[in-house]
């Protein structure tokens, strides 16, 4: 392969900057979460590029891409849980049942 690590790293940098733009500029929580996901994709591309072009001296480094992938998905899961929880509450408040959710919410 003649494409060196520089090309991969540059692509990751551009993707990361695009995600940074979305995370800072956007208001909607889902849009922000998607932008964060894009940043995570870029970070992971960076790490995988380095594992291919650098011989890792230590065992721990090999696990970095797997761990970072999982952590990014966990951030997304927590955000999604919070978005749906908050919107349910907001709706039940709007409906006039300001109290805690009743049987109708199940």
């Amino acid at each position: 392969m003649s494409v060196g690590p520089g090309a991969f790293l540059a692509l990751a940098a551009v993707l990361f900057a695009a995600g940074l733009y979305g995370a800072v500029a956007r208001r909607g929580p889902l849009a922000v979460l998607m932008s964060l996901q894009m940043m995570a994709i870029a970070v992971n591309l960076n790490i995988v590029t380095f594992t291919r072009f650098v011989t890792p001296a230590e065992q721990a480094g090999k696990l970095l891409p797997v761990f970072s992938l999982t952590v990014a998905v966990l951030h997304l899961g927590l955000g999604v849980a919070l978005v749906s929880g908050a919107s349910r509450r907001a709706r039940s408040v709007q409906r006039g049942s300001a109290g805690p959710a009743g049987a109708g919410e199940r």
């Binding site: 690590p5 520089g6 790293l9 540059a10 940098a13 900057a17 291919r52 072009f53 650098v54 011989t55």
Partner: peptide, 15 residues
């Protein structure tokens, strides 16, 4: 980041 990456002395050989 692009300037730093372009200026970096990266290993070009794959492992």
């Amino acid at each position: 980041m692009l300037a730093r990456i372009a200026g970096a002395d990266l290993a070009t050989a794959e492992t």
